[in-house]
Amino acid sequence: MSNDTQLDLEFAYTTYRDSCRDLYSPYYLCRRPSGHDGAHAAGFGTDRLRWEHEHGRSPHQLS
């Protein structure tokens, strides 16, 4: 999974149009680049959320 510094860089250089926007997430807000590896993520600092989605089951929040 990506650390916070790497996620901050991804978010800074990813436009909304190019972001993942995971349709199965609890918030529909994945800010990582489209086609990324690893967990979905949104938000900054202590408000950052991470979640995974596996086909056939609901998303589960990691943080």
Score class of each variant (00 low, 15 high):
N3H: 12
G43Q: 00
G35M: 02
Y27A: 03
D18M: 11
R32N: 04
D47E: 09
G43E: 00
A41E: 01
R32G: 03
L62P: 07
E10Q: 11
G45H: 03
E52C: 11
F11I: 07
H53S: 13
D4A: 10
D8M: 00
G38L: 09
F44R: 13
A42V: 07
L29T: 01
S58F: 14
Y13K: 14
R32S: 00
A12M: 11
N3Q: 05
D47R: 09
Y28M: 05
N3L: 06
C20G: 09
A39P: 06
L49S: 01
D37M: 15
L29E: 01
T14G: 07
G38Y: 11
E10A: 11
S58G: 15
Y16W: 15
D18T: 08
G56R: 05
T14R: 12
P59C: 08
D37N: 12
C30G: 05
C20T: 13
F44H: 08
A12R: 13
S19Y: 01
D47G: 08
G43T: 00
H40Q: 01
A41H: 00
L49F: 03
A42K: 05
S58R: 15
L62N: 08
F11D: 03
D22V: 04
H55V: 14
S34R: 15
E10M: 14
A41G: 04
H53C: 10
L29W: 00
R50Y: 10
D8I: 02
